[in-house]
Amino acid sequence: MESRDTDWDGVRLHVVTGKGGTGKTTVAAALALALAAGGRKVLLVEVEGRQGIAQIFDLPPLPYEERKIAVAPSGGDVYALSVDPEEAMLDYLEMFYGMRRAGRALTKMGVVDFATTVAPGFRDVLVTGKTTEAVRRRGKNGKRVYDAVVLDAPPTGRITRFLNVTQEVAGLARVGPIKNHSDLVSGVVKSPETAVHFVTLLEEMPVQETLDGIAELREAGLPAGGVFINMVRESQLPRTALDKAVKGGFDVTELALGLKAAGLADGADADAVAEALAGEVVEYAHRAVLEHEEREALSEAALPRYELPLLADGVDLAGLYELAESIRTQGAA
């Protein structure tokens, strides 16, 4: 893979996490498109069985099978996989022990149900195991099959436990195959080939959770990646106008004159519309102040930050490509 001078050269596994409602799956999908741009092959993995990828790309539910779902700008393919722990277990048995039939019998008996209920750490090892296998996989030519793998991971509150599989199964399996498997997974996840990205909004709770999540991740020796600030509302209003609005001194008269000039309203009507619009400006200005504080707070994490615009019409396929473009121009892919 030739270098293309992005912030994450050499990273093959991009783990994307975020608090619920921040658009984690959307950002993961856009990142996969951005990484695939220019003729690369990228796998987008989902692990919570929500079929979020299928919904974003407007596809029928994804099976447990790597299949091509999108073509990236200027060539390049995005494949997707919805990992099901049960199927991952069968894979694992077959791959390492050549036991497919025994695996089916285990499934029938509810062993997977059991294992995931009693020890969710097992479930995480199976799921991360499948993902890291795709990262390591090489084709017949000896080259890696995927240039990059993007994992739409569990939310921020669970991410460290989810990735810290060795720790999670340590109490259960000190030796034996599960331990070996989790060591293998851990080798990939803790390497410089992995980056864990956080998706947040410029709001207090998601920002706080992001900062907590980053601290927790670092403590566990896992590699923090970048911070994607999602749904940023942009405005051309000058700083001075916003400052005035916050202090209650927004120039409503000038606004009314502008409305008249634009032929939108006359006389008293223009004043009324200007008043209403000024209300919107004041609210926006107040939020801008708070957002500024949240940006400052995020800068403490000392990670690269990327800002993605709020899409007026919501996230559809076109919007996804727009976000991917934004990710590329900012150097995240």
Binding site: S235, A241, A261, G263, L277, Y284, L310
Partner: peptide, 28 residues
């Protein structure tokens, strides 16, 4: 449309920016 009109005439920049903001809000 009004914002675009003002912008093309190079007049009332503040009003144009407020109208853009309002457009985004109405879309939301």
């Amino acid at each position: 449309a009004a914002a675009e009109d003002l912008e093309s005439r190079g007049e009332h920049e503040l009003t144009a920016a407020v109208l853009r903001l309002h457009t985004g809000r109405m879309q939301l």
